[in-house]
């Protein structure tokens, strides 16, 4: 009887100790997730891979969704997300710590995606790919815009986005889907803020034209 009582006390002690440890690890996990990017970058550079894991978990969804909107294929988006973090990890020792981590990471992601798209398109040059897309410049639809009743669905917008030149699509997604400020988009794209504004303007006008045309066709059918 006494023996079993001692056992119970021991078990209780062990379970309390385990609970304490779980609580501690939970607290540690929440502590580390609250740390700023710059500190996590510093810790990763000092050899703490847990810190890099936090960065991966913090940004993987953003990176994946931006890449997916650019490449429109889940398998490729997964591969490129993996590739982005691996490149970032390898390049981290040379990262300028006075700059922000997020635009730097997104620059790696978008550049890798652009390179992959260029490789997939073969002989087409990147400049052609970025700006020339016959589907993206439909005939003037001023009159159509007046007549068509505008009821845009997510599906239609998704399709229309796919018809935009890649640079315009990327800028539109970064600004409106991901809600990034101009300055960050400019840093990611290595462009001036005014160029970003002009890309956004063109993207919106092209989208409106494509959507108007799609709506006109669907309402006529």
């Amino acid at each position: 009887m006494l023996g079993s009582g001692t056992m119970w006390v021991k078990r209780k002690k062990i379970s309390l100790w385990t609970m304490g440890n779980v609580e501690n690890s939970k607290r540690n996990a929440s502590d580390i997730t609250a740390i700023a990017d710059a500190e996590l970058v510093g810790k990763t550079r000092a050899g703490d891979n847990k810190a890099f894991e936090v960065l991966v978990r913090r940004y993987q969804k953003l990176v994946y969704n931006i890449i997916y909107q650019m490449i429109r294929n889940h398998d490729s988006a997964s591969d490129l997300t993996q590739d982005t973090f691996l490149k970032a990890y390898k390049a981290l020792p040379g990262f300028d710590t006075t700059k922000s981590f997020k635009p730097w990471l997104l620059k790696i992601a978008t550049n890798s995606t652009l390179n992959t798209i260029r490789d997939q398109k073969g002989q087409q040059s990147l400049e052609e790919l970025l700006e020339v897309n016959p589907q993206a410049e439909p005939a003037s639809t001023e009159d159509v815009e007046q007549e068509v009743e505008w009821r845009v669905s997510q599906h239609m917008l998704f399709d229309a986005l796919g018809q935009l030149p890649i640079q315009q699509r990327k800028t539109f997604v970064l600004r409106y889907q991901q809600d990034l400020p101009y300055e960050e988009i400019a840093e990611i794209s290595e462009l001036s803020v005014s160029s970003v504004k002009s890309l956004l303007f063109r993207a919106r006008e092209n989208l409106r034209k494509i959507l108007s045309e799609q709506l006109a066709v669907s309402q006529n059918v």
């Binding site: 991966v56 993987q60 969804k61 994946y64 691996l86 997510q154 409106y176 809600d179």
Partner: peptide, 28 residues
């Protein structure tokens, strides 16, 4: 234009699977 921009904010965002996360960490 407003409707288009509002709709863009509602475009679906895909969740990343734990398998992809583990794969990234394994490569690292």
């Amino acid at each position: 234009t407003e409707e288009m921009v509002d709709m863009a904010r509602l475009l679906p965002q895909f969740d990343v699977s734990e398998r992809l996360t583990q794969s990234i960490l394994a490569q690292v």
